[in-house]
Design a protein around this nucleic acid. Structure first.
Length: 289
DNA sequence: GGCCAGGCGCGTA
DNA sequence: TACGCGCATGGC
């Protein structure tokens, strides 16, 4: 079997930062490259000299699926220059140069984030890996490559018991994933239709699914459908907004959500990802220099 | 060993 | 509307 290869020139793109930034959960570092799965394709990516080098197994007609996933045609400078001109955002941008948003497949993104609640990113990666290994369809991979399958379909997970999901470390999230998979398999919500709706309507549809609240819905709206104004508020973003924008008084979650909806437009989603990564990686203020 | 993690759903005030 | 709590599991 021969590997198919392609090279994309990119600007203002930090591949490693992006793949490891907690939006997608199937990427593993392997030497100077990253190996992962996009849809039903095994992929290896490497950034070198202003280019992303990609390899995949199996036939490739064209590479649009990969450009779309990596969002290589997005002009990041335009987005960064539209961020609010305040010191938190300036610091976040300086700390995360080249951080991008990916465009993921909706079901995988939704299911992954149902697994994410009250979990650290490494644990989410572990859960998603177990789901793929156990229930995912096989893929074409390079020889001698031990790789889990592609992400299992909603139809497949709809047939799986809660107990089997708990064996994949889902814990209390098992009935959520089970329930959502079954609702989708039954056609009660059509994920392929949400991208064409206004943001509020797409969010409302996601909120009818078990285990999906505002935060997870906003992750899917942003990371899968590309709604630029979605702004997921998780524990890190709560800390960021509280410390950086409301240091004097305690602000509750609804208030923070309200503030974020107006303050960071129009590229709120990108701003959120920058704040998220900035908070997770910056040295804590009381840590010694 | 204790705190906390890319939360949600439900009960209560 | 705004909290508080329980829910599994494991990283640090």
């Amino acid at each position: 079997m021969t590997l198919q290869k392609v090279i994309f020139p990119v600007e203002n793109y930090d591949l490693a930062l992006t793949l490891a930034s907690g939006q997608a959960f199937r990427w593993r570092r392997s030497g100077d490259a990253w190996e992962g799965v996009i849809g039903s394709r095994w992929v290896r990516l490497r950034q070198e000299n202003g280019c992303i080098h990609a390899e995949t197994a199996g036939q490739v007609e064209d590479w649009q699926w990969l450009r779309h996933y990596l969002q290589t045609d997005v002009d990041l400078e335009t987005i960064l220059s539209a961020f609010p001109d305040d010191s938190p955002m300036r610091e976040a941008v300086a700390a995360c140069r080249g951080l991008r948003l990916l465009r993921q497949e909706p079901w995988e993104c939704l299911a992954s984030f149902i697994c994410s609640s009250s979990k650290q990113i490494v644990q989410i990666e572990q859960i998603v890996g177990l789901l793929c290994r156990r229930f995912g369809p096989a893929m074409t991979v390079p020889p001698d490559m031990n790789c889990a399958g592609a992400f299992p379909t909603a139809e497949r997970l709809a047939t799986v018991s809660e107990a089997e999901l708990r064996e994949c470390k889902l814990g209390f999230r098992a009935p959520y994933l089970c329930g959502t998979a079954r609702k989708l398999a039954a056609g009660e919500v059509d994920l392929s239709r949400l991208g064409g709706l206004p943001l509020e309507e797409a969010r409302a549809a996601l909120l009818t699914l078990p285990g999906v609240g505002i935060k997870i819905a906003d992750c899917v709206l942003l990371f899968a459908y590309g709604f630029q104004e979605a702004f997921p508020v998780d524990v890190w973003i709560t800390k960021a907004l509280q410390q950086l924008y409301f240091p004097k008084r305690r602000a509750n979650l609804p208030r923070l959500r309200h503030f974020s909806r107006s303050h960071f437009r129009p590229y709120s989603g990108y701003a959120q990802q920058y704040l998220f990564h900035y908070m997770r990686t910056r040295r804590s203020p009381n840590e010694k220099k």
